[in-house]
Design a protein around this nucleic acid. Sequence first.
RNA 1: GGGAGCAUAGCUCAGCUGGUUAGAGCACAUGCCUUACAAGCAUGGGGUCACAGGUUCAAGUCCUGUUGUUCCCACCA
Length: 872
Amino acid sequence: MKQLPKTYDPKQVESRIYRYWMDGNWFHAERDPEKTPFTIVIPPPNVTGQLDLGHAFDETIQDVLTRWKRMSGYCALWLPGCDHAGIATQIKVEEELRREGLTRFDLGREKFLERVWDWKEHYGDRIVEQLKTLGSSCDWQRQRFTMDEQCARAVREAFCSLYEKGLIYRGKRIINWCPHCTTALSDAEVEYVEKSGFFWHIRYPLADGSGSVEVATTRPETMLADAAVAVNPQDERYRHLIGKTCILPLVGREIPIVADEHADMEFGTGCVKITPCHDPNDFEVGQRHGLPQYLMLDGEGRITGGYKWDGMDRYEARKAIVEELEEGGYLASIEPCVHNVGTCYRCHSDVEPLASDQWFVKMQPLAAEAIRVVEEGDVKFVPDRFAKTYLNWMYNCRDWCISRQLWWGHQIPVWYCQDCGHMTVSRQDAAECEKCHSRNIRRDPDVLDTWFSSALWPFSTLGWPDKTEDLAYFYPTDVLVTGYDIIFFWVARMIFSACEHTGQYPFRTVLIHGLIRDPHGKKMSKSAGNGVDPMEVIEKYGADALRFNIITGNSPGNDMRFFPERCEAMRNFANKLWNASRFVMMNLTVEDNRLPETLELEDRWILSKFNALAREVGENLEKYELGIAAQKIYDFIWDSYCDWYIELTKTRLNGEDPAAREQAERVLLYVLTETLKLLHPFMPFITEEIYQALPHQGTALMVQPYPGWRAELDFAQEEASFEEVMEMIRAIRSRRSEMNVPPARKTRLFIVTDDGGAFEAGRDYLRRLAYASEVTVSRLAPDGAEGMAGVVTRSARCFMPMSELVDLDQERERLNREIEKNRGFLENQRRKLANTNFVSRAPESVVRAERERAEKLEVLLANLEASLKQLG
RNA sequence: GGGAGCAUAGCUCAGCUGGUUAGAGCACAUGCCUUACAAGCAUGGGGUCACAGGUUCAAGUCCUGUUGUUCCCACCA
């Protein structure tokens, strides 16, 4: 018989996992309804060289689902990484270049991309290794990164087809510009941060010399690009100014005063400077009034446009301009204020809204279908409150800016003719202008937003735009798992892209989880240095412990704080399971795990408990309540199996009767094996290791069917009557503890009950677990009971002859307290049952349960009173 | 300004569609090295389930409001 090593060493256990894999390979999805009717979409790791806990969370949840489905006779399809590795890598490479005193322009497009690619490959391998360590059973051999041909074709197809339908356009709009990344950003990529700043109130003199208007701004440098001043048409104060002009200080430009609803009469002075190129609202105002557009910032946030501050950084220029305004007497006042500043979600520099020629996706037509599939329930969010978040965004989203002035990414498939100006949008690389056939064409240098290609993921990875067998079989997919922080970035975009390109929703269920935070509840971030590397945790406690920690103790969609101590508790649990398994193996003589022909009461009890567990765990998993399922398995293993059942079997295992011994072994082995199956998705390493050491059928635990409820294991009656014995054992232990009786001191037990069956059967266990030397079960109290220590449960009384330890007065007092307490309960119970409303309106099962409870209480009270009477 | 989450034991959190006397881990107290496990066993202390109303036979759970707190979206000249 195989044995496990004496001590549980996660490192050793977890290094062995690959041995058990089917065919020694990572799992490959097959097109076979028996094996793969379930498809999970998983996000690729955002490659930055190390896996963080956020990914550990993602990965673990996905892996639990996959393993569970696979064990249920299903398989899961993993759609591994296609695309997302590039962005973080590009930033790394740019930083590296900067340290060398270079920019990407010095390197040139080709060389730069090569360098990014090298980094990315390097990261990719590391991530794969790290995920394996965590236990992810994903098929990483199918890994494809961004630039692979399939993905590029899909992106081009999507772009061109949207363009042909008029859903993509190029135009000048206000976009968010990151001067650090020197690129446009989409609205979703801007994070607003509260910063303290100032309102600068500036006076613009009227051109006719009749006074001035006062405007306020938080960005005074943008005055260089002012094209007008607006007042509200309803505003009596300024009605006389409409149509006049004023002189822009420092610049000397004469600008009109226009009437526009945008000016809020209640806010500030009621006059607002209009800077069409640097503010979205002002842009609209500019359009309405046909104002000229002046641009005063270049791509790196420096002043431009022929001013004396040209080339100066935006913040230095702000200082200089304010100073000069003050000197010129134009500065009316400075008022401190707190305002939201948009920052780049990657580099956290302040973004500048500015007018720029970019490519946009027209959102309104796309959103309509994306709203429908969620509202009509084709796509479900779990928990469903996130559907609201999603819908709210969908209803209000503006056109999506998809062009980026970066080099890493899918280059936009558009060629501009230098001769006739025509735009050629093409699936193939264009050699000439499609209109005038000039070969003097230039490709748009910009690339697409990474999320544009990510949005195609559920189908592009299956071969779209080709009509592949994979696509026909696996699409639409079943579940997408991700954190709530990328609902807008990714989930929303996958949904509308899927609807548009494939005419179908991309997945049926979106399982949203929370974020892992540090012990103080702060978001983990690399810059704050409070991030936790899962590899360190795994090193210390093991991947199983980390997985179990992450999966339990929080509810779906809620954030969780990460405490290493909790990992320790989970490691202890693994250790407990390890030792219990060792115990079983040490005692094992049988070679197969069939159940015995006959069963003892406690066997039926544990089998019945296990059966209920299997049913509940299945139900919880179906509802994606992974934490609850895991918690139930934990409780069953620790409490029911280890603390009770194993202790109970020791009598038979150490006894003389070989038949009884084998019987106990078989039940121990059966329940252990089945429980390992239930636990496997949550703790894949240790369960597989133990399973391999036990007598078993088939290759690996991970491909065994997942247990469910079975009628032949349902022993509700026996379960309940054994619980009575357990109750008695607990009561006796408690009583002994109160009286400070050391375990070594055994006593006789006299059990007094009308229903002796369970206690007769449990005699040996009372002896073992309740420290009894001898157990007598009868209907009548023993002689001399009045001097014994007594214990009362709902089904029986028990007397222990330890008169020297019993203080009769204390005993009486204790019994009186008990009686009083239980009378209270009974009265409550009776009141409830006397209430005709309750009896008539509550469901029958509830009423029956309450009746039974009342009956039990009555018996208990009778027992207590009998004991009290006996004391005299 | 709009929306959402959270508020339960000293700490961190469970508690699914309302139905026993509200649970776990950690921490705390007491007693045990009982040959699977001291990373353990047994026993125990500890909670007006934020507050105020309401619905119901029945509320930690559902509804309304209040307070505190966190987050998302929008606006902010």
